[in-house]
Simulated assay, not measured.
Amino acid sequence: MLKEIRWYSELALFLVLSLVISWLPGRSADWVGSRLGRLFFYVLKERRQVALENIERALPFLEAQPGWVLRTPRELARETFENLGRSLVEDCKVYHGHGRRLIDAAEIRGLENFDAARKKGKGVAFITAHCGNWDLLALGFGARVQEITVVARRQDNPHLNEVLERIRKAYGNRVFYKSSALRAMLGAFKRQEVVGMLIDQAVGADEGILIEFLGRPAWATKLPAYIAKKAGTPMVPAFIHREGDRQVMDFYPELMPSTAADPDQAAAEDVQALNRCIERYIVAHPTEWYWIHKRWKNTGGLTVPVLGGRDAQ
């Protein structure tokens, strides 16, 4: 009973605030989102600490990358929260039917890479991460190019889950939930459909492969490698980032599967290569990745096996 009351209270709060936010004009909405994110930075102490610790431990890797601009962990964490606030405001606009302008204003780059993968007739797996406004990436592609199915985790609050599902299904898109996604995804690829997967969250050892991510061991989902082997579906890295007042959606060349004879090594090389794509995104757009997630849990004392040196193109 108390749980239901809490769930409905959270839903009511979201609906009231999101409705007000959804009517804000573009520049005002962006300012409100940034300030809302900054408020979260100061209020959500546990998440702020997770972000600060993640950034501090990733800095040796980041600072060794060409073009890295020196920033303090606190600056990066604060701007990360601000970008998340901006994305939240944008999602509120989409939910209340005011998101088409955001979608139409986004620039699309590298669409020829998607076209090349699609022509193989085995569907397309978009491999992405919690970067920028990842919901807007799927919505923009679905509205302007082709309908897409996204793989998502069901929220604990079922009423808020319905809200998120409505956002993700806007403009004809669909949702597969992780608990039953694999069979549904294989069926979608047989029908030559497009499925988007977020691969940057921590998984358990039983469903993951140990890789190196931002200089540290991390468990990563092996689902993309399994799909590439089982269905022969092209894996196309896709990301979204901000450039001033606009959003840019980038679609990169298909990642060619490993040719290693050992299937375990091939899977590890594929997963590592895909995560290298996410690393490059983070180096280029460090405040647009989801630093507040406990990405490196359950890896204490582990070391990453040495692979054959293959990397993403």
Rank of each mutant, 00 (worst) to 15 (best):
N113R: 04
F251S: 12
H96G: 02
G110P: 06
R71K: 14
Y95R: 04
G208W: 08
D264N: 09
D115H: 09
N298W: 08
V145T: 07
F81L: 11
E4Q: 11
C131V: 04
E243K: 10
K178D: 05
R168A: 03
P217F: 15
V248I: 12
L255I: 10
L15V: 11
H285T: 14
S179D: 15
V124R: 14
K229N: 06
F126D: 09
L102I: 03
S18G: 14
R109I: 15
P257R: 06
P217L: 10
P305A: 07
G308R: 15
L223R: 04
L39C: 09
N298R: 12
H159N: 06
R74F: 04
G172E: 03
A261R: 12
I282Q: 03
T80W: 10
A205D: 08
L198V: 14
L111N: 07
P224Q: 06
F141W: 00
S22T: 01
V32D: 05
K222F: 04
N157W: 05
E165D: 14
R48V: 01
P66A: 03
G187P: 00
L164A: 15
K230I: 09
L15H: 09
K45S: 13
L137G: 01
A106M: 13
P237I: 00
E165W: 08
E162C: 03
G123A: 06
I55V: 01
G85L: 11
A116P: 13
R101T: 03
L88Y: 14
N113T: 01
L198Q: 08
L255P: 06
A218H: 08
L307C: 01
I148F: 04
W134M: 14
A170G: 15
L210Q: 05
R174W: 10
M249F: 08
L160R: 03
